[in-house]
Write a protein that binds this DNA or RNA. Structure first.
Length: 407
DNA sequence: AACAAATTCAACCGCGCGCTA
DNA sequence: CTAGCGCGCGGTTGAATTTGT
């Protein structure tokens, strides 16, 4: 339980003197810190072990970066905070050379203020809503994608960042479907743009499943590969549809800083444990001219840490979810190596993990919407570069692959 | 120049978790 | 099973510094 660490008398408190710093540095560089509680004695310091530890971690460690935070670092912090909340140590683990204390201070002293000035609630990362916007937040987000080119047979969608907070358009709905409707033919519909940043996927998905299970009358194999980068809230994610394969493709362009990816196979059986519950439109909805996909945030999945950015959590989720990192992009390789060498010691890639070229130029998320495994498998054979043999198994288990990348 | 207010940030505090006896 | 202990985390404090008047 919590105890005052400096209950013993004669222990110094407050700022450290250069002499004390020197003693601590000399001791740790010679012998390592070992048991922190024994450090003060061994280093001849009138401090408690806790104080020594803090001083070393936050100030004396040789690998600290120091200096002001770059804009990229700030963006990354905001992004990670939107995902992790006040998990400063987890956020710090993604920022080499930065400490949780430093990040926490930056957040409280600077970033919070900046976000508020932009009309963003730093706690929720949602726009501070007017009453009207508040009403909007409970309604479904709908996207109607107009067929852009009959010749190419592709549908294109480019997100709009208007009225959105770095890509987040509305407050997190308490319970509503996130619905994307693709109209595959030019006869109808306008385009109502909605944000497609990773927050869109991670935060917009709601917590109920009633509709999904009710409307899903056949298994849907959803193989998704999603890359989220560019933390400056300027991500450029497109959506297109290939009429030949009936695949819906998300394309993330201009990616620079950040990657999140996952592969999932979702069926009725595992829909409640998948990172994104994808609901195949039923036949009445799929009238040949349009396909509707409803995506839901699955609270049980997210809240159980199966989806996580933490090192320990990554390890956990990897074991639980049979994760298959799949990276070939040089930037991602860099991150991937970093993740597994720096952040995940002992968590090397296992031989059943694939390292296929999942994206060479663009990052994409691919949904197979035909509701049959054969479609997906056939598509994989046609696209060896997207081969993800382990995405589907006979048990239709989810295979999320979650990790981030920053440069 | 002097003072006050605001900001920064190092350090402390208390709690919870995991390990061990 | 439980208590003791060490450690790490997140929240908070307050001294030092900067900025504004």
């Amino acid at each position: 339980m919590g105890r005052p660490c400096c209950y013993k008398q004669k222990l110094r408190k407050g700022l450290w003197s250069p002499e004390e710093d020197e003693k601590l540095i000399n001791h740790i560089t010679k012998y390592g810190h070992g048991c922190w509680s024994s450090v003060p004695k061994l280093a001849a310091l009138q401090r408690c072990g806790k104080s020594c530890r803090l001083r070393w971690i936050n100030y004396l460690r040789p690998d600290l970066k120091r200096g002001t935070f770059s804009q990229q670092e700030e963006n990354l912090i905001i992004q990670l905070h939107s995902l992790l909340g006040n998990k400063w140590s987890q956020i710090a683990s993604r920022l080499p050379g930065r400490t949780d204390n430093e990040i926490k201070n930056l957040w409280n002293s600077s970033i919070k203020k900046k976000l508020r000035q932009k009309g963003i609630d730093p706690d929720t990362h949602n726009k501070l809503l007017s009453v009207v916007e508040n009403e909007e937040k409970v309604s479904a987000i709908s996207m109607n994608i107009e067929k852009a080119s009959e010749g190419s047979g592709e549908l294109n969608f480019v997100e709009s960042h208007e009225n959105s907070n770095y890509g987040i358009q509305t407050d997190k709905p308490k319970s509503s479907l996130v619905t994307m409707t693709m109209d595959g033919y030019p006869s109808n519909t306008t385009t109502s743009a909605a944000p497609l940043t990773h927050e869109f996927f991670l935060e917009r998905f709601v917590t109920t499943h009633e509709t999904s299970t009710a409307s899903c009358n056949k298994p849907l194999e959803l193989a998704s590969y999603l890359s989220f980068r560019q933390l400056n809230y300027g991500s450029n994610i497109g959506l297109s549809m290939n009429s030949n394969t009936n695949n819906l493709l998300f394309n993330s362009k201009n990616s620079e800083m950040f990657t999140h990816q996952f592969n999932s196979t979702i069926t009725n059986d595992n829909i409640l444990t998948s990172p994104i519950a994808a609901v195949a439109s039923n036949d009445s909805m799929r009238n040949g001219n349009s396909t509707s996909i409803e995506l839901q945030r699955n609270s049980s999945f997210f809240d159980s840490n199966a989806f996580s950015w933490g090192t320990a959590d990554y390890d956990k989720s990897e074991k639980e979810a049979n994760i298959h990192p799949s990276v070939t992009d040089p930037e991602d390789i860099k991150w991937f190596e970093y993740l597994h060498t720096q952040l995940l010691p002992g968590n090397a890639i296992t031989n059943n993990q694939i390292t296929q070229d999942l994206y060479s130029e663009k990052s994409s998320i691919q949904f197979t919407t035909q509701g049959s495994l054969s479609t997906w498998l056939q598509n994989q054979q046609q696209q060896p570069s997207l081969q993800t043999a382990n995405i589907y198994n006979k048990h239709s288990q989810r295979i999320p692959d979650a990790f981030g990348q920053f440069s």
